[in-house]
Nucleic acid binder design. Structure first.
Lengths: 224, 224
DNA sequence: ACGTCGATTTCGCCA
DNA sequence: TGGCGAAGTCGACGT
């Protein structure tokens, strides 16, 4: 990882054409040769960047200024012209062990598929990721009376999730082998607007308690 | 802008729960107090971050290790525990003049609205961003025969753009004052799959020559 | 403040 | 490799 602070101007030509006027900025060069240019605000997005795989060529222009040309396979080009270098240091970091995530939708789906009875007594799983023409339904199940149930799972339940489930229900209800299909919108947190829309469409909303679901799983594991 | 290279572990609790095991990484603290943690690969996305507005508190734990707690209004929390600091420097960068973009969709729309005849002889503009219940249509116009035309503009024409235009056409064609409405999918580059879908739905595809459109505008300006 | 939409989105999965 | 959907998406703009 190389850290350069420099007064620089930057030109990008690729998916669009863009220009950064001369100003002091941070330039990051990583081990994979990727380059990003950061201003002194906003954590997430660089002002300019070139994603790997790409190659970096260092050169000097007629004024003696450093010019870096970063290029990728697709012909995208990033040109950094440094008028003044204020800092330049390199550091060995090695390969990162990577982020461990918890609480994502996939995990919720896994937990809920194992505990369909949380949704209702006698409910059971038909299958996860039940395929339809417009995409897979998170969970397809059966209630105690043998009726079909489609479950859409989100971390945070918002309107677009209800829309998604509505489309699935419309499609599934055209299948005489499945119809009538009941809808369940399950999320750790459901926004009021989403709840209103769901209820209005006859879709049941269920708030998931992630820790409780996980706790049950942990208990299961403890039996072994 | 503060640059810290440190062997650190990181915990994030907020929209999800995540953990980074102890390893050497770059920690960026910007003037707006935002923090991002970078590994030595990938230009764009940090391993972890906290977007502004947020506050950073520095402390020490019982082992004498630096502990930074970054928090935002929504109760999201980022905790960075540094086992060893390998580099620590601060730099004054000032406010960035910002990126100048060219060739974006908005500009294409502006240019095309001024030159509806590029789409067909005698074509004219009704209005840009024509409002509908499901969102604004990029351009609504009229052909030489007085028929209505809906134009969807993209930099790169892909399937979702065709879907979007299809939804608009369906809606507009329900309006007896406008129907029948013809569809035009205009982009600098149209993916084969998008073209196939559009053609299949009776939507005309037009490849836009950005430089030519801009050239005409430049000529106009030169008259003044 | 909230909803909508674009992004050089990036990123991951699966066919 | 392309298509599709999620992302701690972020960020800008309009109401």
């Amino acid at each position: 990882m190389r850290l350069v602070i420099a007064r620089c101007s930057v030109d990008y030509a690729g998916r669009l054409t863009a220009h950064l006027p001369l100003a002091p900025r941070l330039i990051l060069v990583k081990a994979d040769q990727s380059v990003s240019i950061h201003a002194d605000d906003r954590a997430y997005k660089p002002l300019n960047w070139m994603s790997p795989p790409c190659t970096l060529k260092e050169a000097e222009n007629e004024d003696g200024a450093r010019v870096w040309t970063v290029q990728n396979k697709g012909g995208e080009k990033l040109i950094i012209t440094m008028a003044e270098v204020l800092h330049d240091s390199s550091h060995e970091l090695g390969v990162d062990p990577g982020l461990i995530k918890d609480g994502v939708e996939a995990h919720l789906q896994e937990l809920l598929a194992d505990r369909m009875d949380t949704l209702g007594d006698g409910w059971s799983l038909i299958r996860r990721e039940y395929p339809t023409a417009i995409g897979p339904v998170d969970i397809l199940g059966r209630d105690a009376e043998g009726g079909t149930v489609a479950v859409e799972i989100k971390r945070r339940g918002e309107i677009d999730g209800v829309e998604q489930l509505t489309r699935y229900l419309e499609l599934l209800n055209r299948d005489p082998l499945l119809a009538p299909v009941q809808g369940v919108f399950a999320a750790q947190e459901i926004k009021p607007q989403a709840r209103t829309l769901a209820t209005d469409r006859g879709i049941r909303c269920v708030t998931l308690d992630y820790d409780a679901l996980r706790g049950v799983e942990d208990d299961k594991l403890r039996l072994f």
